[in-house]
Write a protein that binds this DNA or RNA. Structure first.
Length: 329
DNA sequence: TTCCTGGCGG
DNA sequence: CCGCCAGGAA
């Protein structure tokens, strides 16, 4: 089949490779294996059983982690998702994808990402863009604050780092909009650094495999297992595999993340301040400038709530006021 | 630590 | 309806 260069039949690879070795191959990856699905499913089941046996006999140690790595690697070989930000080495494109993917599902990012990259083709272009332009391109992704932070991060990267994305998570964390998880994932996906981090897919996957029957699993319990499982020679592919397996798992089981100590439900969106906030900003982007009255009308909101939300939008720099008229700077 | 933040795919 | 490759302010 086409696009399978670099692929070695699993039968050849697994028995011959010691557990401590790495299993990932360079791109291009296997996206599907036609005609061998049954073999693939059987092999996957066999690998899961080997993992479970190791976990039963020796607990969550090096052996179980190595077996677990084989499970997700095997899955990834056969079911890797194709994404634009996985097919580039451009640090800018990967950085933008990481910010977009915070709290936003892949399918939604897929649709917005190409246009954004076309409109702002590198850090310099994004840094030089008007805030308004960036927010317009961001509409539909949600969490508009991230768009402002991304633009500011681009400015810092251009001004302080010569347009290069830092590879030290501690340095990345000082960029606006980049917290612990995103700093580590940027280091992993942009620079292929073997950072250890936890986000929702990592959490789901490790809770599902290593904490069966447990409740209130803490991230601190998961972290050492990630460190032991991570393929230090191929961090990027390792985390891609984790993301893809985690997404698949979600469709087949009740969300294991509900057994995480850090699991919380979001407040309802309908009728909330943030719904109003989104509407008001959107109205302002569509109309250019609006008066207080116009803004309240477009947001479909009473004066009390509208004024409160507007005050926060002003404080956060989304909106500027000039002689009673509001606009996006 | 807790609360707030968007919009929509599945 | 659930929850998304969380960050920052309070």
């Amino acid at each position: 089949m086409p696009g399978t260069k670099g692929y070695h039949p699993l039968q050849d690879l697994f028995p011959a490779t010691p557990l401590t070795s790495t299993f990932f191959v360079p791109l291009p990856l296997i996206l599907s294996v036609s005609g061998s699905e049954t073999t693939s499913v059987d092999e996957h089941a066999r690998l899961v059983r080997a993992f479970e046996a190791a976990l039963r006999e020796e607990g969550p140690g090096v052996e179980a982690c190595a077996r677990f790595r084989q499970v997700i690697c095997h899955y990834f070989r056969h079911h890797a998702r194709q994404m634009p930000w996985r097919e580039t080495d451009d640090p800018y494109r990967i950085f933008v994808s990481e910010v977009m993917l915070q709290q936003t599902q892949v399918e939604r990012v897929r649709k917005k990402y190409p246009e954004f990259i076309e409109r702002f083709s590198d850090f310099a272009a994004l840094a030089a863009a008007e805030q308004r332009e960036v927010l317009e391109a961001w509409q539909g992704l949600g969490y508009n604050r991230r768009a402002l932070a991304l633009r500011q991060a681009a400015q810092t990267i251009v001004r302080d780092f010569g347009g290069k994305v830092p590879d030290d998570p501690a340095v990345l964390e000082r960029l606006p909009g980049i917290g612990k998880a995103t700093a580590a994932s940027v280091a992993a996906f942009v620079h292929n650094r073997p950072t250890v981090f936890i986000e929702t897919n990592v959490r789901r996957l490790f809770i599902h495999f290593f904490f069966r029957g447990r409740e209130e699993v803490r991230d601190a319990e998961i972290l050492p297992l990630v460190a032991m499982t991570l393929d230090p020679a191929h961090p990027r592919e390792f985390y891609w595999a984790v993301m893809d397996y985690g997404t698949m798992l979600k469709k087949r089981y009740p969300n294991p993340n509900r057994r995480s100590a850090s699991y919380t439900r979001q407040a309802p969106f309908e009728g909330s301040d943030r719904q109003v906030r989104g509407r008001m900003l959107k109205a302002l982007l569509e109309h250019g400038t609006l008066s207080t009255e116009g803004l309240l009308a477009k947001g479909g909101v009473d004066e009390k709530r509208g004024t409160r939300v507007l005050k926060k939008l002003l404080a956060e720099g989304f909106v500027a006021e000039e002689e009673g008229e509001y606009r996006v700077p």
